[in-house]
């Protein structure tokens, strides 16, 4: 029989974190509390002679489901704080009476039932091999259908979260082409002071044709009148065509 102490521990470990669903503000805190609840429930399963289910509970819920929750929480913003003030009129009262009423009625009704407890000498324990016989024997069809359901759900989740590309992806070649067609300078802007002889920040760079590129000098220097035109760097025959 289940130890009384164990039951009360399990009860405390499940109910107290579960109440965080009602009172905690941060979703991450709630998720962690629910992980706690799941672990408690796994313990309960083991205590109820269903060790396989207990392990599955740990693996599926704490390992997969709750991690998925946390993952999504990170995705949508872990900082989303929720105002606990109720916005729907009367919703609190509805919640109080509906949930409270259901709980009370269930407890009342369950406590009125007396059931003969199965107390064999060697109790039937839900070991994996025993469960497997039932799962893949009597319920094999259900098992297969559930497998299909899982695949469909996975594909469905993919479809739901997939954002289709409406236009074809632009290649680097296409982007460069578009830039040139828009009238941009085909070459990279050189830094000022190429071919410098002194503090070259005040000398404009030269393009491949040998013309100075005024944009390559800082606007500040231009405003101060501290630039040089770079005429001196040109061959004498071309000096007429150079403009500042």
């Amino acid at each position: 029989m289940v130890n009384d102490v164990l039951f009360w521990v399990i009860a405390a470990v499940t109910v107290i974190p579960a109440t965080s669903l009602l009172f905690a503000r941060k979703a991450v805190h709630i998720a962690m509390s629910i992980v706690m609840v799941m672990v408690g429930l796994a313990t309960a399963y083991v205590a109820l002679e269903a060790p396989f289910l207990g392990i599955v509970q740990i693996v599926v819920y704490t390992g997969a489901v709750m991690m998925l929750f946390l993952f999504v929480l990170m995705l949508v913003g872990v900082d989303q704080r929720e105002e606990l003030k109720e916005t729907l009129k009367g919703q609190r009262w509805i919640a109080f009476f509906a949930a409270g009423g259901i709980g009370t009625l269930l407890v009342v009704q369950i406590s009125r039932v007396t059931m003969p407890v199965y107390r064999p000498d060697n109790p039937l324990v839900g070991e994996p091999d025993v469960i497997a016989v039932v799962l893949f024997g009597k319920y094999v069809l259900v098992m297969e259908v559930l497998g299909a359901l899982l695949i469909i759900a996975a594909v469905g989740a993919l479809v739901l979260t997939h954002v289709p590309r409406l236009t074809p992806r632009q290649t680097q070649n296409e982007r460069a082409r578009a830039r040139v067609l828009a009238g941009a300078n085909p070459v990279n802007k050189p830094m000022p002071g190429v071919y410098a002889r002194h503090n070259a920040l005040d000398v404009p760079a030269l393009d491949p044709e040998g013309k100075p590129i005024p944009e390559s000098i800082s606007r500040v220097l231009k405003a101060r009148g501290q630039t040089r035109d770079g005429k001196e760097f040109l061959p004498p025959s071309k000096s007429e065509g150079i403009e500042q």
């Binding site: 579960a18 109440t19 669903l21 009602l22 919640a95 109080f96 949930a99 709980g103």
Partner: peptide
């Protein structure tokens, strides 16, 4: 039963 009603309250309130 108690856990169930806590979960139901959460769905109603949050």
């Amino acid at each position: 039963a108690i856990l169930f009603s806590i979960g139901a309250s959460a769905v109603l309130l949050r």
